[in-house]
Every structure is written in C-alpha cells, then in structure tokens.
C-alpha cells in the first residue's frame, strides 16, 4: 500500500448506473469500521444513465481535511472498458501503481490502447462472472473484490459485512447473497 501524502487515493471510472458509488460507499464504510478516516464522493455531470462518471475515495490513518478532487490517484478502477477511449484513465498513475479494468480484452491489448502507462494492468471479465453468479450485469461487487485483492486496504470480511449491512434491507437476502459471492469471486480471481 502506497500512501502519498499519507492519504491513499482511489478513482473509479464508470458509467452512471454501474454502481461505482455503491462500492465506493462499501469501501468507505469498511475503512471506517477498521478505524481509518475516509472521504468518498462523485463528480456529478449530466445526470443520465450511461453518462461517464468519476467517483473518488480517500483513505487515511489521520482525519482528511483536503477537499480537492483526486488528480493523482494511487489506483484507478475502470468499470467499463469503452471509457478508455474518452477518459484519461491512467492519468498520473506511477509505474508501481495499478489500473484495474473490467474487460474481456487481454492485458496486452489494453496496454496498447492506453498509451504511456508502465504500471500494472489487472484485467477482470466481471460481466461474465456477474452473468454467471447473479444472472444480470451487476459487475460492481466483483470489481470491489478485485480491488481489495490488489490494494489490500481493507479486509475482505469487513467489506462483506458492510455490504450486507448497507444493502440487505434494500435488495433482499437472495440478491445480497449473490452479490457477496460476486465480491468473493472478484477477490479470488487471477
């Protein structure tokens, strides 16, 4: 875990409706449950389903006073690989930092499409896993699992616990179970 300025910074690139805000919330609540300080917020553009969105999470051992958006993340997460054409997803990512991307493409192909990025690219075909487990294209839980695997900033158990606490009442027991399985699948993926 690489803390720049003692604050670990995560940027999610997604399309509105993909649930980036929900997993940012789970991550933030998990970090708080583990005694950390957090800040989680989104950039709100034109509010329509499918529009590109950016969601930010900051995690620190100390209170976070800075209210800047994140321009120099420690990890970037892309929930929709078509966004790499319009968004500079690897912006300010260093060579020892990671880009996690939901895609059917290989790491090699993605690296070609994103110019000038020498850091780690972690691909995951979350769409396929989601269809397999949930039967619908709900990929955010899988991405959350993958993110925790890569950055190890919170414990998997904590994230599962928080997901349950936040969503069980809202989405019901069955869907919650499936989503938790999805988080675990993402965490265990290669």
């Amino acid at each position: 875990m690489n803390f720049s300025n003692n604050i670990f910074k995560i940027v999610f690139f997604a399309r509105a409706g993909q649930g980036a805000k929900s997993i940012a919330e789970v991550l933030a609540q998990s970090a708080m449950a583990e005694g950390k300080f957090v800040q989680a917020f989104s950039f709100y553009g034109p509010q329509r389903s499918g529009a590109p969105t950016k969601t930010y999470v900051k995690i620190s051992d100390k209170p976070i006073r800075n209210h800047e958006p994140i321009v120099d993340p420690d990890v970037a997460v892309v929930l929709d690989d078509t966004l790499i054409k319009s968004e500079n997803v690897a912006n300010n990512l260093d060579d020892d930092e990671s880009l996690i991307i939901n895609t059917i493409k290989t790491e090699k192909v993605i690296r070609k499409e994103i110019h000038d990025f020498k850091g780690n690219i972690k691909t995951i075909d979350a769409n396929m896993i989601a269809m397999d487990i949930i039967g619908r294209n709900y990929t955010n839980g899988i991405i959350l699992g993958k993110l925790i695997q890569v950055i190890e900033i919170v414990k998997l158990e904590t994230a599962v616990e928080q997901f349950k606490r936040i969503f069980e009442k809202k989405i019901g027991e069955t869907l919650t179970k499936k989503n938790i399985l999805a988080i675990e699948k993402g965490y265990d993926s290669l």
Binding site: A28, Q29, V38, Q39, A40, F41, S42, Y44, H67
Partner: peptide, 10 residues
C-alpha cells in the same frame, strides 16, 4: 453543495 452535502466523511 456536493463537496460537503454528497461527500462521505467520518
């Protein structure tokens, strides 16, 4: 607006 109203903080 947003910076505080929509930002999760401890």
């Amino acid at each position: 607006g947003f910076t505080t109203s929509h930002s999760v903080e401890v």
